[in-house]
Nucleic acid binder design. Structure first.
Length: 295
DNA sequence: GCCCTATGTTAAA
DNA sequence: TTAACCTAGGGCT
């Protein structure tokens, strides 16, 4: 799925094109009929993200909570108000991390017939959004929403986030740092790409126990994750390389081959030390790292 | 068409 | 630790 940056972009996009408007919600697929009915005809007050969770607050104090999982995606379309809106989520190709196609923008009177897999369709006077393939799609009360958020670690994209609970959690576990960074209860928004790239950039062996990281390393991991996530929010895709590792290649063209240091680069030469990038299944996910730089 | 893959999470064993 | 969930694309036959 998209990592945390994409969900923050989704929240921004929902605020741009739907906030303040009365919306129609339906479930063409039929698996979210009751939940959609609770929100149908209500005004969207605001959208926000916590890690990889998206929340939409409606004027009856109910929330639509969506997690895209590994297959989920939102597609948008509508009139000129939807210009610039992106489809966000799967499918994706290697190196193409977020955008599939832009919103369908033009004359708008009603949305196209939905694909049979559309879990939720949201329709306003100006356009529509279709959700397919989510891991989570549910309607929550305010209390339930708080219970979900209480299970999530601090989000580096949240300006009010307090990283101290993250630092503290690292100091208390011997689990490998590469595994802990994927634990959304410890820190939320980091996925398989950011975990690999942050550890490479900080030259930290992903198999080291989290508690073995120095105070400086813990701070550096948080701050680098924050920086890379912010770049992702701005670009709409994940680019983790610094300019000196893509010499003469502008950012816009640093994609896909020069976008990452280790992710999906197994068997290739490390840009920094010349070692061969490795990959290994850890906790059912592909972990990429450079054995030369990260030890 | 068939098989594999994927930026993920949860529950069961 | 494994399976299940769930979707679409790409490469292959």
């Amino acid at each position: 799925m998209p990592e945390g940056h994409s969900i923050h972009r989704l929240a921004r996009q929902f605020n741009d094109v739907f906030a303040g408007q009365v919306l129609q919600l339906s479930s063409p697929q039929g698996r979210f009929v009751d939940g959609a009915q609770l929100l149908d005809g209500h005004r969207l007050e605001e959208a926000f993200a916590h890690g990889k969770h998206l929340f939409l607050r409606f004027d009856n104090d109910l929330y639509l909570n969506v997690h895209l999982g590994i297959y989920g995606a939102w597609n948008f379309g509508g009139d000129q108000q939807f210009r610039g809106a992106s489809s966000i989520g799967a499918p994706r190709k290697v190196g193409e991390f977020e955008l599939t196609e832009g919103a369908e923008v033009g004359e708008y009177s009603s949305p196209p017939p939905p694909k049979p897999t559309v879990r939720v369709r949201i329709v306003s006077a100006h356009g529509w959004a279709d959700l397919i393939g989510p891991t989570v799609c549910r309607t929550l009360t305010a209390d339930e929403k708080e219970m979900v958020r209480a299970q999530l670690g601090a989000d580096p994209l949240d300006g009010d986030a307090n990283p101290h609970q993250f630092f503290s959690a690292l100091s208390k576990t011997a689990r490998p740092i590469g595994v802990v960074l994927m634990d959304q209860k410890i820190i939320s928004g980091i996925g398989n790409i950011f975990r690999a790239e942050v550890l490479y950039r900080q030259q930290i062996d992903p198999f080291r126990p989290a508690k073995s990281l120095s105070v400086e390393e813990r701070h550096a991991v948080w701050e680098d994750a924050q920086k890379l996530l912010q770049v992702g929010v701005e670009l709409g895709r994940i680019v983790t390389t610094e300019e000196d590792y893509r010499p003469g290649i502008p950012l816009a063209e640093a994609w896909p081959e020069h976008a990452n240091y280790v992710y999906q680069r197994q068997g290739q030469v490390c840009f920094r030390c010349g070692e061969i990038i490795r990959v290994q299944q850890v906790a059912a996910r592909n972990l990429f790292w450079c054995p030369g730089c990260q030890n």
